[in-house]
Design a protein around this nucleic acid. Sequence first.
DNA 1: CTTTGTTGATTATCATGGTAACTATATGGA
DNA 2: TCCATATAGTTACCATGATAATCAACAAAG
Lengths: 148, 148
Amino acid sequence: MFFLKELPSREILQSYQTRFPAMNVDNVHDALHMLRQASLLMRQLDNYFAANDLSTLRYLILIVLEREDLPEGLMVSELAERVDVSRPVMTRTVQTLVDDGLLATRACDNDGRIKRVRLTVAGHDTLNRVLPGYYQLIDRFMASDTRL
Amino acid sequence: MFFLKELPSREILQSYQTRFPAMNVDNVHDALHMLRQASLLMRQLDNYFAANDLSTLRYLILIVLEREDLPEGLMVSELAERVDVSRPVMTRTVQTLVDDGLLATRACDNDGRIKRVRLTVAGHDTLNRVLPGYYQLIDRFMASDTRL
DNA sequence: CTTTGTTGATTATCATGGTAACTATATGGA
DNA sequence: TCCATATAGTTACCATGATAATCAACAAAG
């Protein structure tokens, strides 16, 4: 994600308001502020995960699997649904996590179409290694956030 | 951008808190909520711009140029700086906007390295066509937002 | 005036998101 | 049973972000 370095001031938004009366200056101002804050936090998170051989998506897959904690694991399509990403992207990303030893897959006995994905021990370990710094990063970001 | 469909409840965050005492439950909760809201709004904006032969980046380039309103226009690197995107991406995207007739470029007289980018009439028209719906979309999103 | 370094823009390549189309398996009705 | 349809996963391809390397033009020092 990315966003404007310098957001439009309220004065500039006011001038747009005369051109487009439907707009609400406060709502637009708040929305732009939120988008920028989210953009900055996402960038920090991306960098943090990248420094730990992960990505935001790879992390989310691990955390979802840990949270569900099903011995059978989850289907690729269930993961895609929960993380809100397309199935082809999930297929590809799960494959890289299997290659890296953080996930394991098994064919389903009853249904030949289904592949079940679960965390390996290394996957659990990676999560435990990464989570403290993740929470710390969020804490610091929110503490320094000059919200309205 | 993307994000979890279902965020961890406060209870789940509490249980993580016992494992990782450094984390602040409220901060993490607020941060995750913000990230998801931003993700949902970004998706709506992306769809809106795509339906108007734009993208978020293409829109931002147009709005920055209109806001600065310099007859000479802006350099590619100045645009990249303001929109917070890499210069190669800016080069590529400016080129597509020139191809579509929304921007025009001119070499600088004094300095052969510099290329100045400015809005065409069609570029201005596109902005004016797109802005009302853009503000309306943001207004509606913020109005429906169940913030904390 | 030439060499050296800097700056603006671009090219090449990679990463990671998406959609469309395909394969294999399962399911349900004629 | 057999065919039509649906579902899970994948493959192929495209869009758009990044970084590293390259090219051309400028500037400054010897």
